[in-house]
Design a protein around this nucleic acid. Structure first.
Lengths: 174, 174
DNA sequence: CTAAATTTTCGATAAATAATGAAAATATGA
DNA sequence: TCATATTTTCATTATTTATCGAAAATTTAG
C-alpha cells in the first residue's frame, strides 16, 4: 500500500510540474521557471541546483538562471544549510503571498509601461486643434485614466492582508 | 499651423501604435495584433485590410489573421460599407468594454486551465496517506481554492456596469 | 596557497512563434 | 456564366526566445 501511495503521489507531482510548466508559457514566463516554481512549491524540503536539474532534466545554466529569476521575483528564497556549501532553495507556499508577488510583477511589466506611453501621447496632443486631434487626445486620456485606476486598484488589493481581501471579496461576490 | 498640428498628431499616433505593439508582446499577444488594435482604437473611420497593411507595413496574411483574431476576441468588429465589397473593421473604443473583454479572455487562457490542473491533482491525491501526500494534497487544495475564488471575482467584476465598478472601487480605494 | 566544489556567464544551438507571399477559394457584378 | 475583386489558407522563411554545455570565476576547506 505504501508503494502504491508513493506511486500515485509521484504521478500527481510529476503531472503538476509538467502542466504548470506548460501553463507558464501562456503566462509570459518560460517553461523551466514555471516548472521549478511548481517543483519547489510542492517539495517538502528545500532543493539544491543539482536536484532541480535532475528532477526536470534541465541543464545547469537553465536551472541556475531560472532559480535566480525566481529569487528576484520573490517567489523562492535561498537557504543556507550548514555544513553544506551548496545553495538550497525553498518556495513561498502561502497562496496570498504568491498572488501579491505575481500581481506586483505583472503591474510592473504590463501596467506601468502602458501608462507611460499613454501619458506621453496624451501630453503631446493636449493642445492640438481639430476634431481628429481632439478625438485622439480624448481616447488617450480615457485609456490613461482607466489604466491609472487599474494600477491603483492593483496596488491597493495587493497590499491588503488576506483576511481583509476576503472580507472585501464577500462584498463583491455576496 | 494646420500642417504642424497634423504632423504632431501623426507623430503621436505612430508612436502609440508602435509602442502598443511592443507592449503587446509582454502581454502574450503578438506585435501585429496589438498594433492593429492600437491603430483601430485611434482611427476616426473603420479601415479595410489594405489600409491596415499599408499603415503597418505588414503582409496580407499577417494583417488578415490578426484582424480575424481581434474579431474573435471581440475587440474589433467587421463593418459592411455599402457599395464596397471590401470588409472594414472598427474597434470597440469604450475602455470598460475593452477591459471586460480582455479580462474574460485572460481568464479563459490563464485561470481556467490552471484550475483544471489543480482540481485534477487535488482529486488524485485526496485519499492518500502519509505526511508528504497530505502536504501535497493540501497545497493543491489551497491553490485550487484561491484560483477558484479569483475566477469568480474576475467573472463578477467583468459583469459589472462601469458605474457599479467605480462605486465598488471607491470602497476599496477610499 | 592550492585544489576541489560550486556558481555564474555566455556563445552556440535548438525550439517555438510570427510573418511572408503566393496560390486557392470564395464572393460579386456585369 | 465569366472575369475580377477580395478573402483565406498554408508551406516557407525569418525572428525571437529558450536551452545547452563548457569555460571562467568564485568560494571554501585543508
Amino acid at each position: 500500500m505504501k508503494v502504491v501511495t508513493d506511486q500515485k503521489l509521484q504521478h500527481a507531482k510529476d503531472e503538476f510540474v509538467a502542466q504548470w510548466g506548460a501553463l507558464g508559457t501562456q503566462w509570459g514566463i518560460n517553461r523551466t521557471m514555471a516548472q521549478i516554481h511548481a517543483l519547489l512549491m510542492t517539495s517538502p524540503q528545500p532543493m539544491c541546483t543539482d536536484e532541480v536539474m535532475e528532477e526536470l532534466a534541465a541543464s545547469r545554466g537553465n536551472a541556475h538562471t531560472n532559480l535566480k529569476e525566481l529569487v528576484n521575483w520573490g517567489l523562492i528564497r535561498m537557504i543556507v544549510v550548514k555544513g553544506d556549501r551548496r545553495d538550497f532553495y525553498e518556495a513561498e507556499k502561502d497562496v496570498w503571498q504568491i498572488f501579491t508577488i505575481i500581481a506586483r510583477e505583472r503591474k510592473k511589466r504590463e501596467i506601468d509601461p502602458a501608462l507611460s506611453i499613454l501619458n506621453k501621447c496624451a501630453e503631446e496632443t493636449k493642445d492640438l486643434k481639430g476634431m481628429e486631434a481632439k478625438a485622439f487626445h480624448n481616447q488617450m486620456k480615457q485609456l490613461k485614466e482607466f489604466v491609472s485606476f487599474a494600477s491603483k486598484m492593483s496596488d491597493r488589493v495587493a497590499s491588503l492582508r488576506y483576511g481583509m481581501a476576503i472580507q472585501l471579496a464577500s462584498k463583491i461576490l455576496g
